[in-house]
Design a protein around this nucleic acid. Sequence first.
DNA 1: GTAGGGTTAG
Length: 551
Amino acid sequence: MLSKSQIAKLLSCSISRRKTDFYVASSCYLCNSFCTLTKPPERNESPEIPSWVKCLDDKSHGSPDADENFVIPSLASWVNSYGSYGRTEVAKVTSSDIEEINVEKVCKLLRNRYSSPDCVVAALNASGVGSSSRMIERILKKFSNDWIPAFGVFTWAKLQMGHHHPSVLCDLMVDILGKSRKFHLMWKLVEEIRMLEGYVTLATMSKVMRRLARAGKYQDAIEVFKEIEQFGVKRDVAAMNVLMDALVKENSVEHALEVFLQFKACIPCDIHTYNILIHGHCKCKQFDNARKFLEEMEQQGFEPNVISYTCFVEWYSREQDFHNVNAILDEMKKKGCSPNTVTYTILMQGLGKAKQINDALGVYENMKTIGCAPDPSFYSSLIYILSKAGRFKDAWDVYEDMGKQGVKPDLLTYNTVIAAACEHSQEETALKILKKMEEDSCKPDLKTYASLIKMCCRKKRMKVLQFLLNHMFKNDVSIEVSTYSLLVRGLCKSGKLEEACLFFEEMVARGIVPWETTYKLLVNKLDGMSMGKQKEHIQKLMSEAKEWAEI
DNA sequence: GTAGGGTTAG
């Protein structure tokens, strides 16, 4: 039986740079050791002892009959077919297997902490691994919260292939740099691909605008929009909507409004533009202003739709102003605009938060009579509400009922059920669902793991915690500041200070600046336990992290 | 990426 690592070892020494479609992995004819990987033999080659099988290990050969299973048996997903040549069976290894192996090899290398992308490039150059765009995409997703390895691998592959990656990959890189607030590098990359035909699109500039807005650089985001034609992207309503949406989502309806007023004369807006403005104003509880835009859109000939009204329902609900919620629902009825699943979900959530559980459950009944079908998001909210009300058993029943109703759970549903199980300390159930997700090919995300990690810290389940961290890496979920904070906070609360320090250290080593609250909590705890030495160490790490952040 | 995804105290 060949292990994945044996194949990886073998492949890495010989074939990584070749481009043939498939290779043959075979075990030695004489010994059970895993030996060689070559192109398949020609049909007319002797099947007795294929000449192309050579043993790489120079170990003394025992009797070939000692172990009947010396041939390559099941390689599961690694191998898609077998051939038989005499006593040596062969397995085809496709180019996607090679990609898999290269991805693993590169990731292993990237887990060493490099201080700059250049160091990553040098290390990868020395490794002799080959690259492909598809492979880089997978690695970038794995390291999307870790800009140094991500940018290193991106640069290395570009140099190795001698040309730029496809534009979607460039967009991904732009986004990663923006997310880490490496705006200087982000711009350098954008400038670089601007020279290439068709590379910079609205998708690229959307990443730029959204990342700038997220960093609170509202004015910079607006400047990008004003100058967008210099990048070969049309300054039209689609681009304007992206900008306004980014500004609203990052809490500046004021800037969104400024853009709207400045451009409404030259860029004809659409229904989205108005809905973004309504959403923005509802979000900061400026209901009168929101109403003004609802009227303005009508005057401009755009009939308000279910999205327009649902914004009001959401934010009146959040205010627990159910009088106005009902007024909006009545208005919708009058205008012949039916609420949809989203509207009902929001309404039910609002009632749930207001602790009006029975009214919340009534929404579900109401939907059924109207014939509005619940979707996975709706069920997730229902599960959430029941769990928060301490009714885990009912929440679980709803989850099970979904299947019977033919609604497939999605990521949100799984996350909600896992969070509910964790909150009720149902460890086994929570892990069971994690497994179920795998079976359903539903990829877990940071939130999936966050609830599980929180529970493990609380219950001091260190082994399960380690299992989860490995699980995350395998699933391409990159650990970032919120996860580290969760770990440090959770372990502090459980009195596991040594472990908390280790995670704090790892976070800083990855170039992440810890949150001030996380830092203070840890230092206070260390102080309380008279762990002076560790406290000094953490203080030193924190000031280092802050220094780097400023560079 | 025009609306729902639900907490960073204690």
